[in-house]
Write a protein that binds this DNA or RNA. Structure first.
Lengths: 217, 217
DNA sequence: GCAGTTCGTTACCATCGGTAATACCCAGTC
DNA sequence: GACTGGGTATTACCGATGGTAACGAACTGC
């Protein structure tokens, strides 16, 4: 209860909403994605029904939280995408930005992508943040955003629109899956992962030679 | 209660387990991933504690179910991967096999990948299949499997092992994300999606020309 | 001073995952 | 044929959660 009723009154509903989101963020980062509505309300110094008045249901709160973080991530990615360098460097910068983000804030990442896993191992029963949809919205937003960039920058012939969207979602998925695996196993440096992925995007799979004795992949 | 006690007695525990899994499968396909343990037990003609005796907890049941489907999918993919054709055709066949699988059994797919979404819109409260981990195990298995194939078939120089794993997970992620988006929006024929993705893998992103007026992606 | 409205809280419900205590049935034994 | 023992399924229950209705307190306009 850090705020008096008077202070509450002075803050607009939008600002209050932000405060609640920040409180929710703290709890989620501390307790993992299984944080209960009660816990979040307590952290914010209020009680459950107020949360429900602001966000409708738990999914609404999650969605608001996810949008916040997704917006921030998208801003970073856009900066990398817009840097005045050549295409390969740009792709590498974008990959690196994404990977750096999930490396620097793994808690946030896990919350967005794997809502049912407990961040701390002893959080008791994993009831899970049974949100309407999980990582899909984030990935879809990123995919659409990348598709837009691709479509407006590259000349891809008559099917430009369609190709750009396929590639946008495909590349985002590649980045996501590789990043998820890398974050869990840390098999190499970030820089090297970036290079490997860019190589893949640059057609090195098609160019690689067959191994002796087999017909090749 | 379609089975008498006598019949129960005759079936071995392994067979019983299969029966339970099939019942669970039916319920999950009918009610969506939010199916409750009670509902599954009822479908199987038994009660909850028996399910817990067999699968430990809800995560165990989900995992068993997921493993079943993942095994089947992996078998199909391996067949496509092993076909005696050239590399491009093989990649396309694999992509197509995966996409055909998710196209033919979208319910299964949604259960594996988006466990919290209700398949039927009126399933009441979506408590969700708050499993330990969601789609990650499936994707990780596919990624590792593909990595193995890549590593043993392609000659990738000194970092072969590492590169193969990065690419394995990356390609699986690309396929997954693009497939997910495609399944939802159906923007084109499957065949075309396959071609687009294979093109991406074949370096067409790097080769594409800049659009007039900009520095290109 | 008083009525109405807004905001917050307490108390509660339904449901779920998960488990202990209970009744049950069958095999072997006297 | 009655009785006991071991494994099995059932009932009844617990704790926690998401979500909501009924209640109460404070501010506002008159």
């Amino acid at each position: 209860m850090g705020t008096t009723r008077q202070e509450d009154r002075t803050s607009s509903t939008a600002q209050r909403r932000r405060e609640l989101l920040e409180a929710a963020d703290r709890v989620v980062l501390r307790e993992g994605p299984g944080a209960s509505m009660n816990a979040i309300a307590a952290e914010a110094g209020i009680t459950k029904p107020i949360l429900y008045r602001h966000f409708g249901d738990k999914g609404g709160l999650y969605r608001a939280l996810a949008v916040r973080h997704t917006d921030a991530l998208l801003a970073s990615l856009r900066a990398a995408l817009d840097a005045p360098r050549d295409r390969r460097e740009r792709v590498e910068a974008t990959l690196d930005t994404y990977l750096a983000a999930i490396e620097d804030h793994p808690q946030v990442y896990r919350f967005l992508m794997h809502p049912a896993e407990n961040s701390d191992g002893a959080a008791g029963n994993d009831r899970g943040f049974d949100v309407g949809q999980h990582s899909a919205p984030l990935l879809r937003r990123l995919g659409e955003e990348l598709a837009k960039v691709i479509a407006e920058r590259l000349d891809l012939g008559p099917e430009s629109e369609e190709l750009a969207r396929v590639w946008g979602h495909g590349i985002v998925g590649m980045m996501h899956a590789a990043g998820d695996w890398w974050l869990r196993e840390r098999p190499c440096e970030r820089k090297q992962l970036v290079t490997h992925l860019a190589d893949l995007l640059w057609g090195r799979l098609a160019a690689a030679g067959d191994r002796v004795g087999g017909p090749g992949f």
